[in-house]
C-alpha cells in the first residue's frame, strides 16, 4: 500500500508554507504529521487535506544545550501546538526572546510559518521545520 502523504511530499508542501494532513474517510479525524494509518481509528482510507496551520501552544521549552552541529542555534524555543483540526505538532516559536519564555505561553494562539533544517550527516537530507508566530501579533 502506498503512502497517501509521504515525508517528501509533506516536506515539499511545508516549504511553501502549506501544512498538509490526512483526513480519515471512516471517522473524519485529521492526522498530522502524516503516517500510514489514521491516528484515531487505525483506518487506511485517508485523503490528503490542507490544514489552516492555526492552533494554540500546549507546552514549550527553551533549549540551551543543543545537539552536535546545532550549537549556534541555542537558545531556541520548542513548542507543541494543538492545531485547530485536532492533532498536535512540534515546532519552534521564533516570535520572542527565548530567555523570556514562560508558562504564560501555554494557551497562546499561533499560526504556522516555515524554516528549513538543512540536515546533518545522519538526517538523509534537509527537512522543513514548522515555526510558529503569535496570531494576534503580540
Amino acid at each position: 500500500m502506498e503512502y497517501q502523504l509521504s515525508f517528501k511530499d509533506y516536506h515539499k508542501a511545508l516549504m511553501k508554507n502549506k501544512l498538509m494532513g490526512l483526513k480519515c474517510k471512516a471517522c473524519g479525524a485529521i492526522t498530522c504529521p502524516p503516517q500510514m494509518s489514521c491516528r484515531n481509528c487505525t483506518g487506511f482510507d485517508l485523503e490528503v487535506v490542507e490544514l489552516t496551520g492555526k492552533g494554540k501552544i500546549t507546552t514549550y521549552t527553551t533549549i540551551y544545550v543543543a545537539p552536535e552541529g546545532r550549537e549556534n542555534e541555542a537558545p531556541y524555543i520548542i513548542v507543541l501546538v494543538e492545531l485547530e483540526e485536532g492533532p498536535w505538532i512540534m515546532g519552534n516559536l521564533y516570535d520572542m526572546d527565548p530567555a523570556r519564555a514562560d508558562l504564560d505561553l501555554i494557551g497562546k494562539p499561533v499560526e504556522l510559518g516555515t524554516r528549513i533544517f538543512p540536515g546533518d550527516k545522519y538526517s538523509d537530507g534537509p527537512a522543513a521545520r514548522p515555526v510558529f508566530r503569535f496570531t494576534d501579533g503580540k
Partner: peptide
C-alpha cells in the same frame, strides 16, 4: 518530523514538565 525543530532528550521531558 520532530528532530528538525531541534528536540533533545532533556527537551522532551522539559516539554512534559511544563
Amino acid at each position: 518530523y520532530e528532530f528538525p525543530a531541534g528536540i533533545t532528550f532533556p527537551g522532551f521531558f522539559a516539554l512534559l514538565a511544563n
